[in-house]
């Protein structure tokens, strides 16, 4: 074969690769254009949307890692991102008060706990406190960590799947298949929690923060809360409040949203209280995902329920 013939073949091959490349780019951009843009107000909902939507959705959860998404206030650019989404996943139950202060397109809002509205837990006490870089806040109103009742979390996931299917009916089968898998995993967590709580019914527990109401109701936990922050050393009055709670009913375990300071941990140990890390996963975890965090939470709680009373 002549040199000229080789050169011609080489040119044809290059042109073929360019054509294939362009076709591939075209297909990829078509797929990207077809993807639903979903914004979420907290991490659990973002995780559910990612699991259900798979490659057909582009999930955004723009809250910075250091903030509590429940008490965050997004800036105008972030609000514009929410406004431009195809769907905006709300937790409902009064979660994310910032929604009251911004304008979001009503048709795109999906209240994932809409079906649970009749069973919301009303919180009457509300001590104003501060954590992270956000402003002060109180928990009076409606308890909002609905997903810590894993049965409720499964229902919220169902709402997300329904909303995605309404937007993309042609993908409904895939969404439902993914939903079933997710709900199975959530209900496994639910079963494990129920089994755990059944091991020592009525085991008195403490919570460092009033965020475990739905979990306590679902699994029959005897839980009393203080309003302590992991990164803040409790003051004298907080210790006195805890001591009086312990006098009324002894408890050896306190659930924490994050690892408490060493001084706090030692102070608790002096009162005979051990710490259990049970993270609500409101924000995206540094490692792992919602499922790994919840499995770790249940493992940590197992220690309390397996221990002799």
């Amino acid at each position: 074969m002549s040199v000229e013939c080789h050169g011609r073949l080489f040119r044809i091959s290059v042109i073929q690769w360019i054509v294939w490349g362009l076709l591939l780019c075209g297909c990829m951009s078509a797929v990207a254009a077809d993807r639903l843009v979903v914004y979420s107000v907290n991490y659990p909902l973002a995780y559910f949307a990612e699991r259900i939507g798979g490659g057909h959705v582009e999930v955004h959860f723009p809250a910075p890692a250091a903030v509590d998404p429940a008490f965050w206030m997004p800036d105008a650019d972030t609000v514009a991102g929410y406004q431009g989404a195809d769907l905006i996943l709300l937790n409902g139950a009064g979660y994310a008060k910032w929604i009251e202060r911004v304008s979001l397109p009503r048709r795109k809002l999906v209240d994932t706990s809409r079906g649970l509205a009749g069973s919301y837990i009303t919180v009457t006490e509300g001590v104003t406190h501060q954590h992270g870089p956000d402003g002060d806040h109180a928990h009076a109103g409606t308890a909002f960590t609905t997903w810590l009742d894993f049965n409720q979390a499964a229902q919220q996931a169902g709402e997300i799947a329904a909303a995605l299917s309404r937007q993309r009916p042609e993908r409904a089968a895939a969404f439902n298949e993914n939903l079933q898998r997710l709900q199975e995993e959530l209900l496994q967590l639910d079963s494990r929690m129920q089994a755990l709580a059944a091991a020592q019914p009525g085991l008195p527990l403490l919570a460092s923060h009033p965020v475990y109401q739905y979990m306590a109701r679902r699994y029959g936990l005897q839980l009393r809360s203080v309003t302590w922050e992991p990164e803040v050393q409790p003051d004298d009055s907080s210790w006195r409040e805890l001591q009086s709670m312990l006098v009324r009913q002894a408890s050896h375990w306190m659930l924490w949203e994050g690892n408490p300071r060493m001084e706090t941990r030692k102070g608790l140990e002096r009162l005979g209280v051990q710490t259990v890390l049970f993270r609500p996963a409101m924000n995206r975890p540094a490692t792992g995902d919602f499922m790994t965090v919840m499995r770790a939470n249940i493992e940590a709680l197992t220690v309390a329920f397996d221990a002799p009373d």
């Binding site: 105008a76 609000v79 304008s103």
Partner: peptide, 17 residues
């Protein structure tokens, strides 16, 4: 704005209260 097909000449739609 979507329903009426209104277009912006300047700026953006309202975002904050």
């Amino acid at each position: 704005f979507d329903f009426r097909g209104l277009q912006l000449a300047q700026g953006r739609l309202f975002g904050l209260l």
